[in-house]
Design a protein around this nucleic acid. Structure first.
Length: 268
DNA sequence: GTATGAATAT
DNA sequence: TATATTCATA
């Protein structure tokens, strides 16, 4: 407990140190194993457990609190609690993975995707900017740029979304409770007749017309979104809020909203 | 051969 | 119901 170097003394110099460092977008996510499970098993390396956004966020929190209170015993406690919660969450999955491994080494079990409102918004944004013509699963998937998201995931969701659009332009507006779909308003560009050149109706966006006959390449809209599987700072730089707000970034709130949810799956 | 989308399965 | 998987076909 001698010379105490307070972390806050350096807080204002951190941005200076960070100059030239890769941004979070350029780094592999913490939740992503460095080697694939197949490779790991091929070389008899015990595979890393999956890490949820919550796990990464908690670990980060521990790191930060550890840095701030170097000499407090908090760190130990936090570690313990982290370990406990983590193992509780992982146990099933690891067992499942082992079982899966023993029966067939190749098949990777993917968790059932849960379309959170955030994910769905991302989906709708991309579809809107592609136009109905180009909004096909592969392209959507690429533009959404969400790690772990498969073409099948998107195809399935797209199928449902199309049905929703059809149903809502035809029938009464509020028939069923599609909570998810209603969470993100349908962009005007998706309302059936795409060919409404000239005076586009006021689509909230001041930027107005979006000439999107282009391919998937240059679309300006989709900022790379951190995958839902891990805790990164936060989604859309430039959209939701300014990016310097890492303070609220810790913990549960984040992963509750912005992560895959793991649903134990029975083996077939 | 891949990608799509409707149908079907879980 | 929500998501996954299958399958005909483009």
């Amino acid at each position: 407990m001698g010379e105490e170097v307070r972390f806050s003394d350096y807080d204002d110099r951190v941005p200076e140190w960070e100059l030239g460092l890769p941004t979070s977008d350029e780094l592999p996510p913490l939740s992503q194993p460095l080697i694939t499970p197949e490779l790991a098993s091929a070389f008899s390396i015990s595979p890393e457990p999956y890490r949820t956004a919550g796990d990464v966020a908690r670990a980060s929190e521990i790191t930060f609190s550890g840095l701030r209170g170097q000499y407090s015993s908090k760190l130990v406690n936090n570690y313990n609690s982290f370990d406990n919660s983590r193992s509780a969450e992982f146990d099933v999955e690891e067992i499942d993975a082992d079982r899966n491994d023993s029966r067939k080494a190749e098949t990777i079990k993917r968790q059932r995707l849960v379309w959170t409102p955030q994910l769905h918004k991302r989906f709708v944004d991309v579809v809107a900017h592609l136009g109905i013509k180009n909004a096909v699963p592969k392209t959507i998937m690429q533009l959404m740029n969400v790690e772990g998201l498969t073409r099948e995931n998107v195809a399935s969701h797209l199928q449902k979304y199309r049905l929703y659009l059809k149903r809502m332009q035809g029938g009464g507006a509020s028939e069923a409770n599609d909570h998810l779909f209603e969470s993100t308003p349908v962009p005007p560009s998706l309302k059936e007749s795409s060919v409404r050149s000239g005076s586009g109706s006021g689509s909230g966006n001041v930027s107005g017309h979006v000439p999107m006959h282009y391919g998937a390449q240059m679309v300006p809209m989709p900022m790379p979104m951190p995958l839902p599987v891990y805790g990164q700072m936060s989604g859309y730089p430039g959209f939701e809020y300014g990016m310097m707000q890492q303070k609220d970034w810790s913990g549960n709130k984040f992963d509750a909203v912005n992560s895959y949810q793991r649903i134990p799956q029975c083996d077939k």
